[in-house]
Amino acid sequence: MSGMRILIIEDDREAAGYLVKAFREAGHVADHAADGLDGYGKASEGGYDVLIVDRMLPKMDGLSLIGGLREQKIETPVLILSALGQVDDRVKGLRAGGDDYLAKPYAFSELLARVEALARRKSGASGDPTTLRVGGLELDRLGHKLTRNGKEIALQPREYRLLEYLMRHAGQVVTRTMLLENVWDYHFDPQTNVIDVHVSRLRGKIDKGYDTPMLHTVRGAGYMIRDSAR
């Protein structure tokens, strides 16, 4: 996933400058708006793949901005950044029309992964395919059946959901928190490396005995399923 257009609406210039630079380095185009009104104007003109909106902004707060855009039928995916990381703040943010929520402070790799996932969701016009394919890996979502190179692999229900999420985001980095949120529906920090153990089990099932691994660990970020043979 490359070449996204991202609008960062954030009043902290230093933080915004850092983000713009980091997104450029990741191969995307990033613009910056320093207050809510400016951001609202730029976002209304459209042309962005993802908006990153700080919750607390001068002139117009983040949630009102999102509400305004949604009222105008501008459905650009929005990721809310907030210093408030509690459950009800998250719920409020998503209810206001946000698509994802990330509490400050965050790792850039986490933000990047989430933004890319949002942009993919937008461009993913294919809808909800009944079969997910990555290389030789084929997940039949109707029959709940996984095969690699035609050979069936048995999965536990949780492993199935984990793999399904990874395959839907094939080629993209998926972070541990994204997995925890989307597969287990938890937003807390489980302290131990629970996700790593789940992933390594899954890896044991789908990659064991094959020369080319499908499930990769992305250092300092998370995991990615990709067809490395290509």
Partner: peptide, 25 residues
């Protein structure tokens, strides 16, 4: 705070989910 989003749910189900999360570890 955080009292706003309380719902009725099955504690056994919730415990099963967490146990499932920790079982491999």
């Amino acid at each position: 705070a955080e009292r706003g989003n309380l719902i009725v749910f099955d504690m056994a189900e919730a415990a099963r989910d967490v146990a499932d999360l920790y079982e491999p570890v």
